[in-house]
Design a protein around this nucleic acid. Structure first.
Length: 678
RNA sequence: GCGCUCGUAGCUCAAUGGACCAGAGCAUCUGACUACGGAUCAGAAGGUUGGGGGUUCGAAUCCCUCCGAGCGCGCCA
């Protein structure tokens, strides 16, 4: 857990209250919270009153007065002591306005860098080589990737590691099977067929043919002995797997490539040292022929100390040994001071034991932290482990195919339904370049899905791109929006619904923003009001953009949208936002819906910080859903293009642009694309 | 048997020890429209937060206990 970070509105308010509390009692927290009764409430007075033995309401009044002396009323228009000793705060429009303006400057959207940037290794995805990726790998990959993006956004230095299972007994049989087929035939088999069938065939041989089993076991020995010919074959198998992973991650829009693969085999040379050094430190005992560490606090079913086996009775190393070696490598060689493991919850005890042992051995120094970010299972509609109707594992590739296919039919059904026929006719023709086509997840900037019959080939390309963004986004969001510790139910209809807490709903809200900005750009005058003053701002904006992690994350490979945005037919969303999102255009919110929207927009940094603090992407999801809902509400009640005055129009356009920027950036932090049209 | 995770509206899920209404979204019922993309908005109804104790000014949240679900508990990873 990175040090508690506060940002945005909370930070501004806490800057006033923290010194007041600190004066009364050193280190006493203000306990600032968003409130349903006002904008924020200060709860700390109650706890402090108790520890000081004073009357809570009286103390609250005193705190409030002290806060006023520190300029509280520059931020709030209304404050009160209420109930047993709460302090309720209602923000002033002027403060909201200045907050919005600072969000609008630069591209960071209020996301602050961590005060102490860490060097973090995030271990995630971790499929097994020589096996097809399946639904079981989905959560680690999706959650891990979001965590990587979030950590990077606040300035941590992240090393991604894909700890693939590329070593061990299965390779004996795989290599023998490969030899039986003949290398050429095997190469062909691996190229056309899927890995799974190759693995199954080898497995069948192994189970059915004792002689084959013997050869397989002998081959494992050769492999571990470093026999060159065997290693060559092993390498070929692993490479084939890695290509398969690359393809899967690319489709998913996940920032893992073959460069991030650090398989189990990588640690082989380090394993003897792990055991030797543990022994040297007096941490090993022989038990039933195996070398074990017994970290305190763990017991087995008989109440006896539970062993962490680092060398089995046959002399072989276990995955505990590998995990210990990995800790040493990450701390020593990679200089990491935070290790994050995105691995299923059933492994919780294993990691506790490994971490405890690493601490005892001094491999995890006091200033380094290891965290197991666990997650629950994906359940099928029946509430049991998600499987195919036949009871087999659901292959990842097929799952993604279905996601895109379902999204496509929904999009086409809507286009046929006739509501959005007008949208995008202007630029549909020359829309996205063909390059985006095979990028299944490409999305932003693809145009004209609503153009219905207008389509030539390029319109189809665009539909494909949007279907990819929506389909893949829906799968990822469904996973991320649930508390990771809980199991969640996989439900196509729900995740692809345009209503509710789903990716399509949020993407749609963003697409609407894009639509407004496009209209504003093409119809109502060339430039927004206040154009003169805007010029000066541009320079500062670019300077700020230089170190803008938020924007980087958005623009980068967030689900493969790089080819987007360069639409010849019209300016990209980013360009439009730059044009309309100028700080000096923002007025103090006057309408209730403007005020609500402003508050939500300002809450973005806090939402990001909260997500990072507990490694819980679902908090950011909840925020984005709330923002999308609030924006829609605003959009419903406060005419933008037909605003009563030019100033109001410009201000609302800027508000909309800001909402779009946050929606897109927020989605990108989750690894989800934000199409400009849907 | 021990340990871990979990149990919240009919369903799927939220809720950093905080306030008289425990929130959303589906689904259900009522309303709103020449609509800046209706893939919309407003309202209603729906809960003794699995049961029971306890700590606290204050508990869905912390402690104990019982019930229920899932997963771990020595040579697979």
């Amino acid at each position: 857990m990175p040090p508690c970070c506060m940002a945005g509105l909370l930070k501004a308010l806490d800057a006033v209250f923290a010194p007041v509390f600190d004066t009364l009692q050193h280190g006493a927290p203000s306990e600032l919270r968003p409130s349903q009764r006002a904008d924020f409430q200060v709860n700390g007075a109650l706890a402090l009153a108790k520890s000081l033995g004073r009357a809570p309401r009286e103390l609250a009044s005193e705190i409030l007065e002290a806060a006023k002396a520190r300029g509280l009323m520059q931020l709030c228009e209304e404050v009160e002591v209420a109930g047993p000793g709460f302090i309720n705060l209602t923000l002033s429009p002027a403060f909201l306005r200045s907050g919005l303006q600072s969000l609008a400057v630069g591209a960071r959207l209020g996301i602050e860098k961590a005060e102490t940037p860490l060097r973090v290794v995030v271990d995630y995805a971790s499929p097994n080589a020589a096996k097809q990726m399946h639904v079981g790998h989905l959560r680690s990959a999706i959650i891990g990737d979001a965590i990587v993006r979030l950590l990077e956004a606040v300035g941590h230095e992240v090393v991604r590691e894909n700890h693939v299972g590329d070593w061990g007994a299965p390779f004996g049989m795989l290599i023998e099977h490969l030899l039986d087929l003949g290398e050429l035939e095997a190469a062909h088999e691996l190229a056309v067929g899927d890995l799974e069938s190759f693995y199954q065939a080898a497995r069948a041989q192994y189970d059915g043919d004792p002689a084959f089993g013997e050869r397989a076991r002998a081959r494992v020995v050769l492999l571990q002995a470093g026999d060159p010919e065997t290693l060559k074959l092993w390498e070929a198998l692993v490479q084939r797997s890695v290509s398969h992973f690359d393809e899967a991650f690319r489709r998913l829009g996940i920032k893992l490539t073959r460069d991030d693969v650090v398989g189990e085999s990588f640690y082989n040379p380090l394993l003897p040292g792990v055991v030797a050094d543990l022994a040297k430190a007096g941490l090993l005992e022989e038990s039933e022929g195996a070398m074990c560490a017994f970290p305190p606090g763990f017991t087995n079913r008989d109440g006896n100390p539970l062993p962490l086996i680092v060398q089995n009775s046959a002399g072989g190393y276990t995955y505990a040994t590998t995990d210990l070696a990995a800790i040493r490598d990450r701390v020593d060689r990679l200089r990491a001071n935070l290790l994050v493991y995105v691995v299923g919850l059933p492994q919780a005890q294993h990691f506790q034991m490994v971490f405890a042992t690493a601490r005892l051995a001094g491999w995890l120094p006091p200033d380094a932290l290891a965290v197991h970010v666990g997650f629950g299972s994906i359940l099928g509609p029946d509430g049991k482990m998600f499987r195919t109707r036949q009871g087999g594992t659901v292959k990842l590739a097929e799952l993604l195919d279905e996601a895109v296919e379902r999204a496509r039919s929904l999009l086409l059904a809507r286009a046929g339904g006739g509501s959005g026929a007008e949208a995008g006719t202007a630029e549909a023709g020359t829309g996205a370049e063909a390059g985006t086509a095979e990028a299944g997840t490409a999305g932003a900037g693809a145009g004209g899905a609503g153009a219905g019959g207008a389509g030539g080939a390029s319109a189809q390309v665009e539909v494909e791109a949007i279907a990819g963004a929506v389909g893949i986004g829906a799968v990822k969001y469904a996973d991320l929006s649930n508390d990771r510790a809980r199991d969640y139910r996989f439900d196509w209809d729900r995740m692809l619904s345009f209503d509710g807490n789903t990716a399509p709903y949020i993407q749609y809200a963003n697409a609407r923003v894009c639509s407004i900005l496009r209209r504003a750009a093409s119809a109502g005058g060339e430039e927004p009001a206040g154009e003169e003053a805007a010029g000066e701002e541009a320079a500062g904006e670019e300077a700020a953009g230089e170190e803008a992690a938020g924007e980087e994350a958005a623009g980068e490979e967030a689900a493969g949208e790089e080819a987007a945005g360069e639409e010849p037919g019209g300016p990209s969303a980013a360009e439009l936002r730059e044009r309309f999102l100028r700080p000096q255009l923002l007025l103090a919110p006057s309408e209730a819906e403007e005020r609500e929207l402003a508050k939500r927009l300002l809450g973005f940094p806090d939402a990001v910080a909260a997500s990072i603090e507990t490694y819980s992407p679902h908090k950011l999801c909840a925020y984005l859903f709330d923002l999308a809902t609030t924006f829609t509400n605003f959009y419903e009640r406060c005419p933008v293009l037909r605003a009563p005055s030019e100033e109001t129009r410009s201000s609302r356009l800027a508000l909309s642009a800001l909402a779009g920027a946050i929606l897109e950036t927020g989605l990108s932090l989750l690894g989800i694309a934000a199409p400009e049209r849907m």
